[in-house]
Amino acid sequence: MNTPDGGGAPLSPEDSALCAGWFKALADPMRVRLLNLLATERRPMAVGEIVERLPIGQSTVSHHLKVLAGVRFVVPERVGTSSRYQVNSTCLECFPAAVRAIMGQS
């Protein structure tokens, strides 16, 4: 995402769509909790571990992880026949800049 450097510069259609996708992914409180869990654990976690820590079932966790992976907030890592998920630190570092860009701040 190209953030405006002149303060108040309009977002491109592509950057607007990217930001909208991020906010849509975060529009569900359980996805926010799931992302927070992964961020505070600071390590890859299996779906089963996540299910043990959140009050939702495996299929729901898997759905939420798919949404978060779709906007690159989380990254899956294949380990044998299962996957572990971790926060994509690069993407999350960009998020505050995206918020500033939306607000017209440099």
Results as ranks from 00 to 15, higher is better:
1 M>D: 09
1 M>H: 12
1 M>K: 08
3 T>I: 15
3 T>C: 03
5 D>H: 08
7 G>W: 01
7 G>K: 03
10 P>F: 12
10 P>R: 12
11 L>E: 13
12 S>H: 06
15 D>R: 07
17 A>G: 10
18 L>G: 06
19 C>W: 15
19 C>P: 00
22 W>Y: 15
24 K>D: 09
24 K>P: 00
26 L>G: 07
26 L>Y: 08
26 L>W: 12
28 D>R: 05
28 D>N: 15
29 P>H: 10
29 P>Y: 11
29 P>N: 08
29 P>M: 07
32 V>L: 07
32 V>H: 04
34 L>E: 03
34 L>R: 00
35 L>E: 10
37 L>M: 12
37 L>F: 13
38 L>W: 06
38 L>S: 11
38 L>T: 08
39 A>F: 09
40 T>S: 13
41 E>G: 05
41 E>K: 15
43 R>L: 02
43 R>G: 02
44 P>R: 11
44 P>H: 12
44 P>K: 13
45 M>T: 00
45 M>G: 01
46 A>C: 01
47 V>P: 00
47 V>A: 05
49 E>R: 00
50 I>Q: 04
50 I>D: 00
51 V>M: 05
51 V>G: 01
51 V>D: 01
51 V>L: 02
54 L>Q: 07
55 P>F: 08
55 P>G: 02
55 P>M: 06
57 G>W: 10
58 Q>H: 11
59 S>G: 01
61 V>L: 02
61 V>T: 04
63 H>A: 13
63 H>F: 06
64 H>W: 09
68 L>A: 11
68 L>M: 12
71 V>Q: 09
71 V>N: 05
73 F>K: 02
74 V>C: 15
74 V>R: 13
76 P>W: 07
77 E>D: 12
79 V>L: 07
80 G>R: 07
81 T>Q: 10
81 T>W: 01
81 T>E: 12
82 S>E: 01
83 S>V: 02
83 S>C: 10
83 S>M: 03
85 Y>C: 05
90 T>S: 13
91 C>L: 10
93 E>S: 15
93 E>F: 14
94 C>Y: 14
95 F>P: 06
96 P>H: 03
96 P>E: 04
97 A>C: 02
97 A>K: 05
98 A>P: 02
98 A>F: 02
99 V>C: 09
100 R>D: 14
100 R>W: 03
100 R>T: 06
101 A>I: 00
103 M>E: 06
104 G>K: 09
106 S>Y: 01
